[in-house]
């Protein structure tokens, strides 16, 4: 069962392509983390799902309904926390929640929702005086109205301190346990890693990776970076480097003076060290560092500064 299904969606603004033939599906009941640097097309994708914008080509459906034709029904069953959303400055926090409840024909208790997101104390204050974090909490409360089947959260931790972000993740887990599907975007891996069943990484309008968090980890060969300090540079240094490079499992070797950096699979470590010693030098020191999921994310999304921002 898929809750969100995007097939071959393209969105162009003039000559700029914000999304390029995106295929993406979110299964019912899962927490899907939508990752990518700013400007990769995350908000464009979410705006397509919500019918805020229309695709240049391709199909978007939610609950098996057409995102354009049945947008009202979709939004009745969905709770939304849009990115960069603003409140009505002259209305109180409670008024916002009451408005969402009335709009959805739900029967929630506004105070309970405000309590849940931790701003019950400010319920009667005008939202214009709220801090960024409080605004984000208020908008989150309105997204929770009517026990939605789907929660769409665009950069939900914006403006929240680490504690607030943790509280929000807690509520997201509770909502998911109740049965809600959660689709949430972030440009920070840590936000997503802790909570998501599956992760999609978007780069320049294209999905470059999609898997479970563990799957993404497994998909990386167990690469290790060996940093080796030797006592001297061997006479025939290029032949020495070639010998190390030719070891099975080594992908990269670089030398800087008497420091060697060797990227290799875990299993090749011992062979590499032995091969270095065979070059007639002695090892004075060595260190290893495991690559993390963060490295993978960086590798996928690096060099993204010239992105199309919308």
């Amino acid at each position: 069962m898929t809750t969100i299904n995007i097939s071959n969606a393209t969105k162009r603004y003039g000559t700029e392509t914000a999304l390029d033939g995106l295929d993406l599906s979110v299964r019912r009941g899962e927490i899907y983390g939508f990752l990518g640097p700013n400007g990769a097309g995350k908000s464009t994708t979410i705006n397509l799902i919500l019918d805020f914008i229309r695709p240049t080509a391709g199909e978007v459906s939610v609950f098996g309904l057409d995102a354009r034709e049945d947008t009202l029904e979709i939004r009745t069953r969905t709770g939304i926390l849009p990115e960069g959303v603003e409140t009505y400055d002259r209305l109180t926090g409670r008024k916002h929640v009451e408005f969402a409840i009335e709009s959805k024909g739900a029967d929630d208790d506004p105070d309970e929702l405000l309590e849940r997101v931790g701003i019950a104390d400010s319920a009667d204050k005008k939202a214009g005086g709220y801090s960024k974090g409080m605004t984000q909490r208020l908008m989150f409360a309105t997204a929770l109205v009517g026990e939605p089947d789907l929660l769409i959260l665009d950069e939900p931790s914006t403006g929240l301190d680490p504690n607030g972000a943790r509280e929000m993740r807690e509520i997201i887990r509770e909502e998911n346990a109740r049965g809600a599907t959660v689709f949430f975007s972030s440009h920070i891996l840590g936000q997503v890693e802790a909570i998501c069943d599956r992760v999609g990484i978007l780069r320049k309008g294209e999905l470059v990776a999609e898997d479970t968090v563990d799957g993404l980890r497994d998909s990386m060969p167990e690469q290790t970076r060996l940093r080796v300090q030797v006592d001297r540079i061997p006479e025939d240094s290029s032949a020495a480097l070639e010998a190390i490079e030719s070891v099975d499992g080594v992908s990269e070797v670089s030398a800087d003076g008497t420091t060697l950096v060797v990227t290799c699979e875990d299993r090749a470590k011992t062979t590499v060290l032995r091969t270095i010693e065979e070059q007639g030098v002695s090892i004075e020191d060595f260190a290893t560092d495991e690559s993390s999921l963060e490295d993978l994310f960086m590798a996928y999304t690096a060099d993204d500064r010239t992105e199309v921002t919308q």
Binding site: V85, F99, S103
Partner: peptide, 14 residues
């Protein structure tokens, strides 16, 4: 301009 329209249209209003 401010973005509050996304709140309004995020709720079920055409």
């Amino acid at each position: 301009e401010s973005g509050s329209l996304k709140f309004l249209l995020g709720l079920p209003h055409t």
